[in-house]
């Protein structure tokens, strides 16, 4: 059985203005996991990450990293952790090389060793050519990669990424996904928060959804997606302005003369749909999923919770 990389128990946080950001949350991330913490803005994701990484003081509860309690064994816990924050938080006047070498120094890695490691991670993240430039001259994507490089300098066992691909172009996002997958395969446990649910669906094995300071879902991606009982497909069709055929088990609607939408239960066969469309003289050119499956579920879970309140 895998060891526990991160364990959170009855964690609460109330800010000085009285706002209760976390309402007794429990969370466990096994070693080697690729874990996503999802939630709408202001749900408590960043507060949770802030407490784990010692940037926010908790009100009560317990957090341990690889068995090291944050209260009593803070130094050991910090050595296991690497953080890639959401916002750029390095000196804009220092070069990438200075930034990563200093960061290694804060973890007690001597300069000589840190210089060798710096070359390794800066090359891995495609920043070696820019190593001596002031970091303010780097592009947004490079700055984000610099923060990943900085977090990897001390080879953390648990890497936490807060919205790592926010504002990053698609090509770079894909290459970062590949990099993170490789890192996870090499044994690094990864926890990420993201707004791109496609990202969580592609990368993560386990997912927790946090809303209004509470964990409202915490399960494997497989289990979560199995809860999705209905999918919506978009059909691109040849121009057609006739009546829609009657379907008993699917909801078909016309978006415009070139597009139809259909809600299909996961248990139903879609062949019937095509037969009916064919009979009605509708020629389907292509078909795609309307929304990301996880996105659909996410919206549904959060909405359900609001309706119950």
């Amino acid at each position: 059985m895998a060891a526990t990389a991160l364990s959170i128990s009855k964690l609460e946080k109330t800010y000085q203005n009285g706002f209760q950001a976390l309402k007794s949350i429990d969370l466990t991330v096994p070693e080697g996991d690729f874990f996503a913490l999802l939630g709408p803005n202001g749900a408590g994701k960043s507060t949770t990450i802030g407490i784990i990484t010692s940037l926010v003081n908790k009100t009560s509860g317990k957090v341990s990293v690889f068995g090291y309690d944050l209260e009593t064994q803070l130094s050991q816990a910090k050595r296991c952790l690497g953080l890639v924050p959401q916002e750029f938080n390095f000196s804009q006047f220092e070069s990438p090389e200075q930034i990563v070498i200093n960061q290694a120094g804060y973890y007690g890695i001597p300069r000589k060793q840190a210089t060798v490691r710096a070359e390794e991670v800066l090359k891995q993240l495609g920043l070696w050519d820019k190593r001596s430039q002031p970091s303010r001259n780097l592009s947004g994507g490079m700055k984000r990669r610099l923060m990943i490089a900085r977090a990897l300098m001390h080879k953390p066992r648990l890497l936490i990424l807060d919205e790592p691909t926010a504002g990053v172009d698609i090509e770079l996002r894909r290459s970062m996904w590949e990099f993170l997958t490789e890192l996870n395969e090499q044994g690094t446990t990864i926890v990420l928060t993201t707004h791109y649910l496609e990202e969580a669906e592609s990368l993560c094995r386990n997912i927790a959804i946090i809303d209004d300071g509470q964990i409202i879902e915490n399960t494997s991606k497989k289990d979560l997606l199995s809860k999705l009982d209905m999918e919506t497909f978009v059909l691109d069709i040849e121009t057609w302005d006739g009546e829609l055929p009657e379907l008993t088990d699917m909801a078909l609607r016309k978006r415009d003369d070139h597009t139809l939408e259909v809600d299909v239960s996961r248990t139903h066969n879609v062949n019937n749909l095509f037969l009916k469309l064919n009979d009605a003289g509708i020629k389907v050119l292509s078909m795609r999923n309307k929304a990301n499956r996880l996105e659909e579920l996410f919206v549904r879970i959060v909405e359900n919770k609001k309706q119950k309140q």
Partner: peptide, 18 residues
């Protein structure tokens, strides 16, 4: 203050520096 303002003080706060 600059380290606070630009938030790179966090580099130190997350690290195991007493």
């Amino acid at each position: 203050f600059s380290a606070k303002f630009q938030r790179h003080i966090e580099e130190l706060l997350v690290a195991p520096v007493p």
